[in-house]
Write a protein that binds this DNA or RNA. Sequence first.
DNA 1: CTTAGTGCAAAACATTTGCAAATGT
DNA 2: ACATTTGCAAATGTTTTGCACTAAG
Lengths: 140, 140
Amino acid sequence: MVHVKELSIETRLRDCGLRPTRQRIALADLLFAKGDRHLTVEELHEEAVDAGVPVSLATVYNTLHQFTEAGLVRVLAVEGSRTYFDTNISDHHHFFVEGDNEVLDIPVSSIEIGNLPEPPEGMEIAHVDVIIRLRAKKNR
Amino acid sequence: MVHVKELSIETRLRDCGLRPTRQRIALADLLFAKGDRHLTVEELHEEAVDAGVPVSLATVYNTLHQFTEAGLVRVLAVEGSRTYFDTNISDHHHFFVEGDNEVLDIPVSSIEIGNLPEPPEGMEIAHVDVIIRLRAKKNR
DNA sequence: CTTAGTGCAAAACATTTGCAAATGT
DNA sequence: ACATTTGCAAATGTTTTGCACTAAG
């Protein structure tokens, strides 16, 4: 049924030098089928298990790191304890809802950053992350 | 000798509802004496021990969290594993040197952010973090 | 004295790793 | 068949917690 999609994901994995194993295909499906997502390892693992793909937690960790190296996903540093992975690798920024620990995309076009400072000698800019931290507005 | 400074730190702590204990004073001294700093718990602990204040790691954790709640320091989310604490609580941004895991301040004045998107319904902006990730420039 | 703070060791998490068994090519 | 990948369980690294002991007011 979802065979067309799986084929293309298999190709993508192969292009990255990753063997398209059952687990990797299933994880990639979950990651990319539903559009842009922000997930912890734990969340993805649970989704996979719920979807009937009993992959181990260690494999989810390993797979997400492989995907990161392959440039399929990106690591998000928003909160100390858990690592978030972002399936949207295009240039964009994030809302982070404190308390809920929820991450939302901000289209890059909607933010203008000017006057970026010169990086120190011998350094170049790898990436600019903007995180807008949100809290519930207290209604009084 | 450094008594004037210690007195004022004692007052600051007291104002935050924190008893100025030996350990807290020593840690606050290390944090604030040398200007703006970006430290992990481990680093601060080592500094304290080196300075002849044999505080325990757990106390450094507890103290930094208390300082954070009191608004004396700020948590920096730059890198997944370790938590950085920033002694500069004014509005500013950061360079993060990947590989070195080093954090550098960027004066806020030098970056202009325009077109900030509207926060979702019922939310307000708590803080805007800009992290410019740097990598060593490859000289070719 | 009384209460809050500290240190230690153990617990709790998140993440990584080693190795035998399973899978992909 | 052969190399890679997986799963498990154990190891690691970081942070938190429980509780007896110590220090501050």
